[in-house]
Amino acid sequence: MRADDWLDRLEEIPPGEPEREGEPPHRYTVKLDVFEGPLDLLLHLIKKEQVSIYDIPIARITEQYLEYLRRMQELDLTIAGEYLVMAATLIYIKSKMLLPRDPTQVPEAEDEEDPRRELVQRLLEYQKYKAAAELLWSKAEREQAIFARGRLETDDANPEVNATLFDLLCAFQRAMERLKERRELTIAREEITMAEKIAELRALLEREERVDITALFEAARSRRELVILFLAVLELVRIAVIRLVQTERFGRLLALRARASAEIVT
């Protein structure tokens, strides 16, 4: 069957029309998903047969129910366990109703004896929530047509102010000054390359969502390391691996992974 052929058939089905017996099974494929479970299917059958929920003709409904499951099987659909449990329940109720009533039983207990009672209770209960679901659906439908103002860019919603090169330089400057005061007494010259520094930063960013650059500047042990770190940060910004942000103007510099661009250059 060609695809548009199939579409034509789909359109033939009037919406909301219950399926009639003897129709080719492909029509059922369209309708099958509609049922939310065995209770839903039973309610549908009861409505279709126009019988009272309080006095279900159990033999007829059971037959239709099983017929439905057979069609599902023909279509190779997996039948959820719940449907089978319900089938067993229906057959059990049917058989119980076929049995002659115990003549020694006192007649006033008759009402309680109706084997359908529990099922009817469940159907009535389920029916209410099905109605409630429809009510929620219509409420959601109305809300879909309503628009409230979007989120404002407040400090709360967006704590990041974009950092500029100037901010980076300032942080560098401050760290340099602090370093001067510290007067480190290192004799052996530390050999650290920019490539190593970049790798180090990348590793750090792998582990952490945001890296405090100001803190890194402050932790630099030598002028040389600080310069290399500075260049490494600049490089990572250039190749768009990171993005610099501040939580406030002149505040601490944070490096964030630039989204979806980490693979651009290495």
Binding site: A132, A133, W137, Q144
Partner: peptide, 12 residues
């Protein structure tokens, strides 16, 4: 939209 299964569950 939410599926009917989700809406039913939400209603319950």
């Amino acid at each position: 939209r939410l599926s009917m299964a989700a809406l039913e569950t939400l209603a319950v």
